[in-house]
């Protein structure tokens, strides 16, 4: 019970921070953290298959793709305004 309450608190905190921060990199990091916590929540809800999918897609691949996109964005921005 306490475990679930802590999990919900962490989920809400990370989600609100990820949506409200102006720093894109921080938002990506918080999104990765949110995906991880979501995987834990699915595991807690007795849905191991969805936890597997969330760990792979939400925390792993989407995070890496967003980081890659952010890298391209910074490079473009620097080329435009040296």
């Amino acid at each position: 019970m306490i475990f679930d309450l802590l999990l919900v608190t962490a989920l809400l905190v990370s989600a609100v921070h990820a949506l409200s921060t102006p720093d894109l990199f921080r938002a990506v990091m918080l999104f990765i953290v949110f995906g991880l916590l979501m995987a834990l929540a699915w595991a807690r809800l007795n849905a191991p298959d969805i936890a597997l999918a969330e760990a792979a897609i939400g925390a792993g691949l989407t995070g890496a793709l967003l980081l890659d996109a952010l890298g391209h964005l910074h490079r473009k921005r620097r080329e435009r305004s040296p």
Partner: peptide, 30 residues
């Protein structure tokens, strides 16, 4: 639930991809 061990395995694997994407794509820029 033995299937959760598979999820843990996947998580351990994909942490590497995230970190490598960070070190090679983001942080080399100013």
């Amino acid at each position: 639930e033995a299937a959760l061990v598979d999820a843990a395995l996947l998580l351990a694997l994909l942490a590497l991809i995230t970190g490598a994407a960070f070190a090679r794509r983001i942080w080399r820029e100013e």
